[in-house]
């Protein structure tokens, strides 16, 4: 492993269920395959017992041995207080361990293509942004116990969106399509809201998006996949109906996100980047979106998404 982490990409991988190691293995393999070095994986486990942690270490051993240049560190989150789904707390545990320049997040059931972080680091360098996003393809998998990784049957393009305003409207950038440059973000701003059991990634994007420049230039590059399995195991299930209790939770957190839109003020520098000149004092995300929707404001022309990405996104098969 590299001792010098100054240019390291550190990746937080949250892992909450030892039984899902097969899916985790795919995420780890896609990280080992990354062309960017130095690379450090912060595997944050949620309330694993000692026995579970030992078993995990044994299963990680061959992955560590494949490429010793990739550092694979397990961070144990053991606090029992707080939310049952400690996804935000796991993020904060990973952030507390991070020491490199670049920070990323990859969920245990998603994958990145080998050039992903090289593309995103280059995007950050070229744009001067604090956060860069790459394109993430949606892929559908049929669940099968015989094939634990699922059987791929459809690639659905990617979620529509290409600008900061699109991010303000909806979360179209999956977490693992993001890389942030910690040297351009105040340490005090790097935290996840541990009161959220859902949309913690989107809240992160909204909050940072009001204060730091985002780069969407790498959306042209599909750098990974968001994998939908048809057994409903994703946080956002593709085809199974959401039951009433779960829907109630969704609504509650969606309302919370809307409250954030109403309270998060867009910094003058970000407004300037959007072409709002002079900046409006106290302009919130909701205020901006309402003005746009009422036709009271027009923004600087955003760069159009390259045609080939549109073509890729429209290459819908079956669904």
């Amino acid at each position: 492993m590299h001792d010098d982490l100054s240019d390291a990409v550190e990746v937080i991988v949250r892992f909450h269920n030892p039984a899902l190691f097969e899916e985790l293995s795919g995420a780890l393999l896609s990280l080992i395959a990354q062309s960017w070095r130095p690379l450090r994986v912060l595997l944050v486990t949620q309330r694993f017992t000692d026995a579970q942690s030992q078993a995990l270490e044994a299963r990680l051993a061959p992955f560590r041995a494949i490429d010793p240049s990739v550092s694979l560190d397990v961070v144990r989150y053991t606090r029992e207080d707080g939310l049952a789904d400690a996804r935000s707390a796991l993020l904060n545990a990973g952030i507390a361990e991070a020491r490199g320049r670049y920070l990323a997040v990859l969920d245990y059931d998603d994958v990145l293509y080998p050039e992903a972080y090289t593309v995103l680091v280059n995007a950050l360098s070229a744009s001067g942004g604090a956060v860069a996003f790459g394109g993430i393809a949606l892929k559908s998998l049929a669940a099968s116990t015989a094939v634990p990784f699922g059987i791929g049957f459809a690639r659905l393009g990617r979620l529509p969106g290409q600008t900061l305003v699109d991010t303000f409207r909806d979360g179209f950038c999956p977490f693992h399509g993001m890389l942030l440059d910690r040297s351009r973000i105040a340490k005090a701003d790097l935290w996840a809201d541990d009161s959220l059991e859902l949309f913690e990634d989107y809240e992160w994007h909204l909050r940072l998006g009001t204060r730091y420049p985002f780069s969407y230039h790498a959306l042209d590059n599909i750098i990974g996949e968001y994998r939908y399995k048809d057994d409903g195991s994703n946080t956002v299930p593709l085809r199974l109906s959401i039951d009433a209790p779960r829907m109630a939770i969704w609504r509650r957190y969606a309302e919370e996100i809307e409250r954030r839109r109403a309270s998060l003020e867009i910094a003058p520098a970000i407004q300037a980047g959007l072409g709002i000149d002079p900046p409006l004092q106290g302009l919130t995300i909701r205020g901006l979106l309402d003005r746009l929707d009422r036709g009271e404001m027009t923004l600087r022309q955003q760069a159009a998404l390259p045609q080939r990405v549109l073509a890729y996104a429209s290459a819908e098969v079956g669904l």
């Binding site: 393999l29 395959a33 050039e115 094939v147 990784f149 590059n221 599909i222 890729y312």
Partner: peptide, 14 residues
């Protein structure tokens, strides 16, 4: 499908 060989194939269309 159970035998994964990790390759350096780039993203399609990129």
């Amino acid at each position: 499908p159970n035998a994964r060989y990790i390759t350096s194939q780039a993203a399609p269309g990129t």
